[in-house]
Simulated scan of single mutants.
Amino acid sequence: MESNMTIASDILEIQGFDIAPEFTYPLFFLLLFVYSSLLFSNIGVLMLIITEKSLHQPMYILFCNLSVNDLIGNTVLLPPLMAHIISTDINRFITYSQCVAQAFHSHTFGSASHMILTIMAIDRYVAICHPLRYSSIMTTRTVIVLSATAWGVSLLLVSVLIGLTVRLSRCRSFIQNAYCDNASLFKLSCEDVSINNIYGLFFTVLLFSCSMGSIAITYFRIAIICWIKKNKELNNRALQTCASHLVLYLIMLWSGFLTIILHRFPNYPDLRKIAYILFHVVPANLNPVIYGMQTRSLRAKIFQILHREVTST
C-alpha cells in the first residue's frame, strides 16, 4: 500500500537504464560520439551563419533557432545520462531542482522544435508559391518576430505545465525513467493530479494540432501550386526543399508520439526511454547536415571553407 506521507528530501533516485556491464562503455562512447557530432555540426552552422555576412538573411535566422534549440535540448539530456551510465554506484541520484530544470528544458525543446519547424514550413511555402514576394513577406523583422513568438509561447506553455507539477507535494522519491520529464515528476505525488493530466493533454493536443495542421495546409497548398503550374523546375525545387523538412518533422512527430503513448504502458520502460532519446538526438544530428547540404548558399560556403582548409595544408 502506498503511503501518503509527504517527503521533504530534495534527493531523488532515478532509474536509468539497466545495462549489462559489457555494454556500459560501448553505449557511453556511442552517446559521446552522437553528442560530439551534434555539437560540432550545430555550432559549426551557427558560427558560419554569424560570421558570414552574406548569410545574414531571414531563412538562416530559422536555422540558427533550430541549432540553438538542438544544442540546449541535448546538452540538458545527454551529459547527465552519460554520467549515470558509467557511474559505479548502483543507485543513481538527482536533486529535485535539477530534475525540474531538466524537465523544463526538455519540454521547451520539444515545444520549440514544433514551433520552429512550423515557421520553416511557412517560409518554404512563401518561397515556392510566392517567390517574387518572398523578400517583402519574409523580412528579417518578420522572422525575428515569428521566432520570438515561437520561443515565448513555448516558454509560457511549459512554465504552466511544470508549475502545476511543482505545486504538488511528494510522497515518492523514485523517478521511473532515465531522465526527468513532467509525467515522471507528477507521478512522485500522491495528490489528485487530474489538473496536471488535463493541462498536459491540452498542451499536447494544442502543440501537435497546430504544428500538424499548419504543416499539412502549407504542404497541401504547395502541392496544388506545383500541380497547377506543372513546372519541372518548380517541382524539383519543392521536392528538394520540402522532402527533408517533412522527413525530419515526421521523425520528431512519431518519436514524440511514441514517448507520450508509452507513458500509459509501464510494461515497456526501455522502449519509452529509447524513443525519448531518439526524439532528441536524431533531428539534432540530421538538421545541420540536411539543411546545410540542401541550402545552396550555405552549402557553397561550407565547401569553400573546406577547400580553403585543404589547399592551406
Results as ranks from 00 to 15, higher is better:
1 M>Y: 14
1 M>G: 14
2 E>W: 11
9 S>F: 04
21 P>W: 01
22 E>V: 02
25 Y>P: 00
26 P>F: 08
35 Y>W: 15
36 S>K: 10
37 S>E: 15
42 N>F: 05
43 I>C: 14
46 L>W: 09
49 I>H: 08
51 T>I: 13
55 L>K: 03
55 L>D: 13
61 I>E: 14
62 L>H: 01
66 L>W: 06
68 V>Y: 15
71 L>A: 05
72 I>F: 10
74 N>W: 05
78 L>D: 03
79 P>K: 10
80 P>Y: 04
89 D>P: 02
95 T>L: 05
98 Q>P: 02
98 Q>E: 13
98 Q>R: 08
98 Q>G: 09
104 F>S: 02
104 F>A: 04
105 H>Q: 15
106 S>G: 15
106 S>H: 14
107 H>I: 00
108 T>Q: 15
113 S>Q: 14
114 H>T: 13
115 M>C: 15
118 T>F: 13
120 M>D: 02
127 A>F: 09
129 C>E: 08
130 H>T: 07
133 R>E: 13
136 S>T: 13
136 S>G: 04
137 I>G: 02
138 M>S: 12
138 M>L: 14
141 R>F: 14
141 R>H: 12
142 T>H: 06
142 T>W: 12
144 I>M: 11
147 S>A: 13
152 G>N: 09
155 L>I: 14
157 L>C: 01
157 L>S: 06
159 S>H: 08
165 T>Q: 06
166 V>Q: 00
167 R>L: 02
175 I>R: 02
176 Q>A: 05
180 C>Y: 08
182 N>F: 10
184 S>E: 11
189 S>V: 01
193 V>P: 00
197 N>H: 03
200 G>Y: 01
210 C>T: 14
211 S>L: 08
213 G>N: 02
214 S>T: 13
215 I>M: 13
215 I>Y: 03
220 F>K: 14
226 C>M: 04
229 K>S: 10
236 N>H: 07
237 R>H: 12
238 A>M: 00
239 L>W: 07
240 Q>R: 11
240 Q>Y: 05
250 L>H: 12
253 L>H: 11
253 L>Y: 12
255 S>L: 13
256 G>M: 07
261 I>W: 00
263 H>M: 07
268 Y>S: 02
269 P>K: 00
275 A>K: 02
279 F>K: 06
286 L>E: 06
291 Y>S: 08
298 L>P: 11
299 R>F: 11
301 K>A: 12
307 H>P: 06
310 V>L: 13
